[in-house]
Design a protein around this nucleic acid. Sequence first.
DNA 1: CTCACGATCAGCT
DNA 2: GCTGATCGTGAGG
Length: 216
Amino acid sequence: MPPLPLPRSLFEADVRQVAVALLGQLVVRRETSGPPSIGRIVEVEAYGGLDLDPSAHSYRGPTPRCEVMFGPAGHAYVYATQGRCCCLNVSAVGDARGQAVLLRALEPVAGAERMRTRRLARLGQGPTRARLTAGYDHELASGPGRLCLCLDVDRSLNGVDLTDGDGPLYLARGEASPPPLWTPRVGLNPKSASHGWPWRALVPGCRAVSPPRTLR
DNA sequence: CTCACGATCAGCT
DNA sequence: GCTGATCGTGAGG
């Protein structure tokens, strides 16, 4: 039996509380055939929204891209990061504050074979292919774009209700997670006032978190 | 229009 | 460990 969805009330709290509450929970992706693919959330980032967080897409108010951030809590905000891949966020708080939690990494729980197939379909013959075929399942969804590739999440899912257990994508109760590790968010512009804010939360010691990034 | 931005991968050192 | 290529979105001129 597929797991039951999380209640919307979980997403209506302060965005950093929502971020922590999401660690250890499950992302459930319905498949056109066969059982759903499922990943456990192991890394998230909170985005503080309108007038609060210069790194949030919603900082200056709604645009066609980020308007879901200003809608009710518990919906998917999916945006394309410059062509290659998408990122999946969960709208939080509601009340037109423009807040959301970015899902940055999953640990595969069910359907890892399908996730691997989707990752490999986008790869050439380089080292990444070699690692994934060698069985490094914890690297399948270890990044916000990889996570979306694994679960076939693209902008057609922008706005879906993640509390709808009959929908194509939803969130469900996972096992309790240990107290989170807070760090600065990844990949922000160093000139930004919010650079360095410790709004990234990880499951301590989990191998499936995103790898360190070389700053350019 | 032009520019900056962000995640990923390949290829090189 | 570093560099270049890729490309959707939106801000500023």
